[in-house]
Design a protein around this nucleic acid. Sequence first.
DNA 1: GCCATAGTACGACCGCCATCGAAACCGGAC
DNA 2: GTCCGGTTTCGATGGCGGTCGTACTATGGC
Lengths: 116, 116
Amino acid sequence: MARPRTAARTVEHPDLSEVSLQQVLEALVDPVRRMVVSQLARAGEDKSCGTFDAPVSLSTLTHHLNVLREAGVIRQYYRGTAKLNTLRAGEMEEQFPGLLSAVVHASAAESEEGVA
Amino acid sequence: MARPRTAARTVEHPDLSEVSLQQVLEALVDPVRRMVVSQLARAGEDKSCGTFDAPVSLSTLTHHLNVLREAGVIRQYYRGTAKLNTLRAGEMEEQFPGLLSAVVHASAAESEEGVA
DNA sequence: GCCATAGTACGACCGCCATCGAAACCGGAC
DNA sequence: GTCCGGTTTCGATGGCGGTCGTACTATGGC
């Protein structure tokens, strides 16, 4: 169907007003997904699927990224062969004030404690 | 074994420093438990098991209250025949800053939206 | 054109947790 | 003492979700 060569694959993202608190909490309750979120928050910038450090297979990781995207926590977009992921921190803050930041912060605090 | 007549049944509560973020999130991810927390937050004061409005049987409700207690979210104590429940909001705020309040707030916002 | 690389879709398995009903329990009222 | 209402424990059940491997697709480089 002569799909455009550039700006090729696009990804569906929910409007945050359509996302329920339940969805967000379910997304954040899984340890692997919280790792992903933490790594995104720490990295400061976009990471591709393969660059996450997680104790699961790639297909499982894809699954987790889908859940996070559907919960409105991350945004995904293609660039070249890679699919990049970024936190929707600002929007989340608007829709669920303090929630994502509290989780990220507590998560970081817990892992520091292990180091200290 | 000659259990003391007074100050009878006591309940074990974890120190919040022993509670993991994982535990807290698992406690808060269940809709019924979030209802309980919301009702406690709104009521302002202690509620007995039987006074919660939840679409589950009493035995299930007991189970949920146990989970919340073990996660450090609520404190329980006996008074007469009743077992009262109260939020450990202050302690939670210290250990997991912003977390419980964000969830309670978002929860309230969502139910208001249904009303509006 | 071909190949290599990155990610995805699908289907199956398995363990965990919410749920219930019924029976036991405990404290207080009488 | 006996009864009663409130709460808990136990065991069984059912469904959902995390996990994996494999087969597949798509993009970019050669």
